[in-house]
């Protein structure tokens, strides 16, 4: 298994007839374990749609997605919810931690979802919080954390299930440049240390310095892939 995630000829359209909107057309891309890629593009370019498809939230109209070599949208009824909690980690723009859970409980929740409970879950949660240097805030509620700390906890939560891929939706948008870069460096570190493929949706070109490659979208089409050699062969011969 060379790629953590691999998409071929992805297309996504909404509506029928005159109202049909093609959000994505012929997207093919691949990311190896331990790589950090940025998905960039203007508003409406299809970034979020691509994220949803890769995050197993929305099925593509056409195309194929292999997650750790497993064909996800192959017509069989996969339990996408289960695959999501076992193989995908999410990081959001505003961290989106569960406000009524402490930092540690937010991480524990992800562990519980994959069936890890008790001491094992406890030590794994603390290990992750220590790794992300927020262990001293373990007992604090999200509202008691700074923006940067929240994102660190969100990264810890995303890492908890030891996912094949982490999808980060504008994780630096709510932070100033310094903190944003700090988060990107952290994601860079995480991808290397944990061997996790990370895809970051971002508008901020200043963050590109930290990534291994950029997938650039325009009007639903991919106009740039960080490393064209890695781009999987299109089934349509494109």
């Amino acid at each position: 298994m060379e790629y953590a995630i691999e998409a071929t000829d992805l297309a996504k359209s909404y509506g029928e007839g005159h109202t049909r909107v093609e959000a994505l057309k012929g997207i093919s891309m691949a990311v190896r374990p331990g790589e950090l890629f940025a998905i960039m593009g203007a508003s409406g370019s299809g970034k979020t749609t691509l994220l949803m498809i890769l995050g197993l939230v929305t099925e593509p109209t056409e195309g194929r997605v292999l997650l750790e070599g497993e064909n996800i949208y192959n017509g069989k009824r996969f339990d996408l919810q289960r695959l999501r909690r076992e193989k995908v980690g999410f990081i959001f723009q505003f961290a989106n931690l569960i406000p009524f859970l402490t930092a540690k409980e937010n991480v524990l929740l992800s562990l519980e979802l994959i069936g890890i409970f008790g001491r094992q879950a406890d030590s794994r949660a603390m290990e992750l919080l220590e790794y992300l240097e927020v262990a001293d805030r373990a007992g604090n509620l999200p509202e008691q954390l700074s923006g940067g700390e929240r994102q660190r906890v969100a990264i810890a939560r995303a890492l908890a299930n030891n996912p094949a891929i982490i999808l980060a939706d504008e994780p630096t948008a709510a932070l100033d440049t310094e903190r944003g870069l700090s988060v990107m460096r952290l994601l860079r570190k995480v991808s290397k240390d944990q061997g996790t493929a990370i895809l970051v949706v971002t508008h901020d070109t200043r963050m590109i310095s930290e990534v291994d490659g950029v997938i650039r979208l325009m009007d639903g089409r991919m106009v740039e892939h960080g490393d064209s050699k890695r781009q999987p062969q299109s089934q349509n011969g494109r």
Partner: peptide, 14 residues
């Protein structure tokens, strides 16, 4: 509702 959406996205059993 937002927390429920996050929980669903994280794969929390319905």
């Amino acid at each position: 509702l937002k927390e429920i959406a996050v929980l669903k996205l994280l794969g929390t059993q319905t």
